[in-house]
C-alpha cells in the first residue's frame, strides 16, 4: 500500500458517498446513467470472485470489495425501485452491447490464463475502463450536469488518475513488477476523463454551472 493507492481508494469511496448523497438529498437520480451503474455492478462481481476462492489479501482488501459490491447493488436498487420515476431512460441511450461485446472478446484473447476466473478478471478490467462511457455520453447529450454529479465524476476520475503514479511507484519498489492488463486499461480509462476534467476545472471549480459549449 502506498499513498497514491490509498488516496485513490479513498477517492473511490468518496465518489460512491457523493453519488448516494446526491440521490438521497435530491430524492432523484436525474443525470445519472443507470447503464454505467449496472456496468459497475458487473465489474465488481466479476472481479471480486476471489473473495470466495480463498485468495485472501487483507481485511482492508476484503472489506473494500464487499463495500463496492454492496453499494453498487444498493445504487441500482435506488435507481430502479425507490426513485424509479426520476430515472429517464430516453436520455440514457448508449448501447451496452457496444461495450459488453468488445470487452468480452478482449478478455477471451488477452488474459493471464485461460481459466474461468482469470478471463472474468480481465473482462472486469476492460469493462471498468469503458463503464463510464454511457454516463459521459448522457452528459454530452444533455450538455449540462448538476454540480454534485460533476463532483461524483471528479472523484471517480481522481481515483483512476492516482492509480497511474501508484503503478509507477510499485514498479520501482517491487523490483520492476508490472501488470500490463491493468495498466493499459487504466491509462485508457483515465484518458476518458480528460475532456470532463477540462470543463470541471475551468467551470465548476470557478463556481459556474457545468455546461458544455453548444
Amino acid at each position: 500500500m502506498n499513498l497514491f493507492r490509498l488516496v485513490a481508494d479513498l477517492s473511490h469511496l468518496a465518489s460512491i458517498f457523493i453519488l448516494l448523497h446526491k440521490i438521497q438529498t435530491t430524492r432523484s437520480c436525474r443525470g445519472i446513467s443507470i447503464k454505467t451503474q449496472l456496468l459497475y455492478v458487473l465489474v465488481f462481481v466479476t472481479r471480486y470472485l476471489d473473495l470466495f476462492t480463498g485468495d485472501f489479501v487483507s481485511i482492508y482488501n476484503s472489506v473494500m470489495k464487499l463495500f463496492f459490491i454492496g453499494s453498487s447493488c444498493y445504487i441500482i436498487y435506488l435507481m430502479r425501485i425507490k426513485y424509479k420515476p426520476t430515472n429517464d431512460p430516453s436520455i440514457d441511450t448508449f448501447r451496452l452491447e457496444y461495450i459488453l461485446g468488445p470487452t468480452a472478446v478482449l478478455a477471451l484473447i488477452f488474459n493471464y490464463k485461460f481459466t474461468f476466473l482469470e478471463v472474468l478478471w480481465a473482462f472486469s478490467i476492460y469493462l471498468e475502463a469503458v463503464a463510464i462511457l454511457p454516463q459521459l455520453f448522457m452528459l454530452q447529450r444533455t450538455g449540462e450536469a448538476e454540480t454534485i454529479t460533476t463532483h461524483y465524476l471528479a472523484a471517480l476520475g481522481i481515483y483512476r488518475g492516482l492509480y497511474i503514479p501508484n503503478w509507477i511507484y510499485r514498479y520501482f519498489t517491487e523490483g520492476g513488477a508490472i501488470d500490463p492488463i491493468a495498466v493499459v486499461a487504466g491509462i485508457v480509462q483515465t484518458a476518458l476523463y480528460v475532456d470532463f476534467f477540462y470543463v470541471y476545472f475551468t467551470k465548476v471549480l470557478q463556481g459556474q454551472k457545468f455546461e458544455l459549449p453548444a
Binding site: 473511490h12 517491487e174 520492476g176
Partner: peptide, 10 residues
Amino acid sequence: LEMPAEKDEL
C-alpha cells in the same frame, strides 16, 4: 514482464 506478487488492486 514480471507480474506483481499479488493482485491486491481493487
